[in-house]
Design a protein around this nucleic acid. Structure first.
Length: 151
DNA sequence: GCCAACGTTGGC
DNA sequence: GCCAACGTTGGC
């Protein structure tokens, strides 16, 4: 079982939105970065644990816990010409983008990025590196456990 | 709104 | 396959 951190803009899907979805589950559609796609397609397994991170918002930080509940499958929005995630180069025979489904586990207190930065134990987290723009990053078990202890 | 960092695109 | 231009991300 692996640990991940997944960013979402709360104006798009917040942790509260996730909690009120049918089955408390959402498809993690719209990822258009190959590295992030590869994490979902090649490495994520059902049961993997996820920090749900609010980004691009007044209070960025970890807002809750989720888990992977469905293996990666083709992202439907790549085929939808009305979607902003439409990709004309993708075909159903040869899909380019994939997503997993993620299920709500619980809300946590908001652990802000500033607080995360204050812990030397977490200095290696991808999310804290300058210029990091990956929306999905692996989390070391030690880092995961450390955060769980201060949450 | 600014801007640093970085990924992608496309001409050559 | 290089690399400049461009677009996007995301904290501040």
């Amino acid at each position: 079982m692996r640990y991940w951190l997944m960013k979402s803009e709360p104006s798009d899907v917040s942790i509260d939105d996730l909690a009120s979805m049918p089955e408390q589950t959402v498809a993690w559609y719209g990822v258009r970065n190959y590295q992030a796609r590869n994490f979902m397609r090649d490495q994520m397994r059902v049961g993997d644990q996820v920090f749900f991170y609010h980004s691009s918002c007044p209070a960025p930080g970890i807002a809750g816990i989720a888990e992977v509940c469905k293996l990666a499958y083709p992202d439907a929005t790549q085929f939808d010409s009305d979607s902003k995630y439409f990709d004309p180069k993708a075909t159903s025979q040869n899909p380019r983008w994939f997503n997993v489904d993620v299920r709500f586990v619980r809300k946590t207190r908001l652990v802000g990025i500033k607080e995360l930065r204050n812990h030397p134990e977490l200095a290696g987290m991808r999310i804290l590196q300058t210029g990091n723009r990956l929306s999905i990053t692996p989390v070391d078990p030690a880092e995961w456990n450390f955060v769980m202890d201060i949450i």
